[in-house]
């Protein structure tokens, strides 16, 4: 360009223009790669190892033996998972509990989201804040709150017995019902928010057009509102379903010893049995099941945030 030697600042600026982009992408990319993606590969690796009484408590997968790599892949962990009905039933239980809770959350959350979306200006903001507020308060404390309500000596039993409706306390805590209540309660905001945002964005004149063309209100809801809010339903359901499958705290605190869920199994394998390879294979097995919903979630997440589509 010119013969004059660029100053240090100019050089820096030029360098920034050329490489700044890479720098901005690089930092978060590297961090997430190292602390999010690589760990999964390690989990995968260790799931093929065998447990050892050592530090760390698993065998090495690769061993340098005589100018070559000896790979000791051990499928035993996975075979063990398949052979033991405990794991299989924990899986099926988790999926069933997560699915049922998701449906209940949807049934409670949809009318709420719809009501909020139809509310006027300041009321709407207030209602929205009321939905978000519990989401900010401690998750653990919200689960804990239900212990006092559902317990054998809890408030529900005290109230029902005080009113002489029942004579023997109901067993609610330490049942699956308590787990449903816990999941629905803690994940309800995650369902309401995406539903609200699709319902709020929906053009009100579409519903008016349907009414105008002779459609009765409930039918207009079924043929117009419901199909158009499908993205919100899907996003909300995935936001509830995926974490609920791996939920640990809720079944641990509200469920009984028989409420087996896979997150709880993983926790016990790791902390109680100290069997890291089995815990890893449980994690990988859970991940394999969740990979499709997670990728689908990412897909719709990308679609809603990409204004080009």
């Amino acid at each position: 360009m010119s013969d004059i030697k660029p100053t240090l600042k100019q050089r820096f600026d030029r360098w920034m223009i050329r490489h700044g982009r890479v720098l901005v992408i690089g930092l978060p990319y590297l961090w997430l790669f190292l602390f999010f993606l690589v760990p999964f590969l390690i989990v995968l690796k260790i799931s093929f190892a065998t447990a050892q009484y050592a530090q760390p408590p698993y065998s090495a997968l690769f061993q340098w033996v005589d100018e070559g790599v000896n790979i000791a892949i051990n499928f035993g962990n996975y075979l063990f998972l398949l052979s033991d009905s405990l794991y299989i039933s924990a899986y099926l239980n988790s999926i069933r509990i997560a699915a049922i809770s998701t449906v209940i959350t949807l049934l409670i959350g949809y009318p709420m989201a719809y009501g909020i979306a139809r509310a006027k200006g300041s009321t709407r903001n207030l209602l929205l804040m009321l939905v978000i507020l519990p989401f900010w308060t401690s998750f653990l404390i919200r689960v804990y709150a239900w212990i006092g309500i559902l317990d054998r000596e809890g408030l529900i039993n005290a109230a029902l017995m005080g009113l002489h409706i029942i004579s023997e306390p109901l067993i609610i805590r330490q049942t699956e019902v308590a787990v449903y209540i816990g999941i629905v309660y803690t994940y309800l905001p995650f369902m309401i928010l995406p539903l609200y945002s699709t319902l709020e964005k929906m053009d009100g004149s579409l519903l008016e057009a349907a009414l105008d063309l002779g459609c009765k209100p409930w039918k207009a809801f079924a043929t117009i509102t419901l199909p158009l809010s499908l993205p919100g339903i899907l996003a909300g359901s995935l936001l509830v379903f995926i974490p609920a499958v791996g939920e640990f705290v809720i079944p641990e605190l509200l469920g009984g010893p028989n409420t087996l869920m896979i997150g709880r199994t993983l926790w016990n394998e790791f902390f109680s049995n100290r069997d890291w390879p089995i815990a890893s294979s449980v994690a990988i097995a859970m991940l394999i099941f969740l990979v499709v919903p997670i990728m689908y979630f990412q897909h719709i997440q990308g679609k809603t945030e990409d204004p080009g589509k």
Binding site: Y29, L32, F33, F35, F36, L37, V38, P39, F40, I42, V43, I46, L238, L239, I242, P243, V245, G246, E247, F248, G263, L266, W267, F270, W276, A279, S280, A283, M286, L287, L290, P293, I294, F297, Q298, Q301, G302
Partner: peptide, 20 residues
Amino acid sequence: MIAAPLVMPDVITGLSLLLL
């Protein structure tokens, strides 16, 4: 890598980070 941590079950994230 941005969307997945939002829904990833905590037990998996916890275990994988520990192993890392």
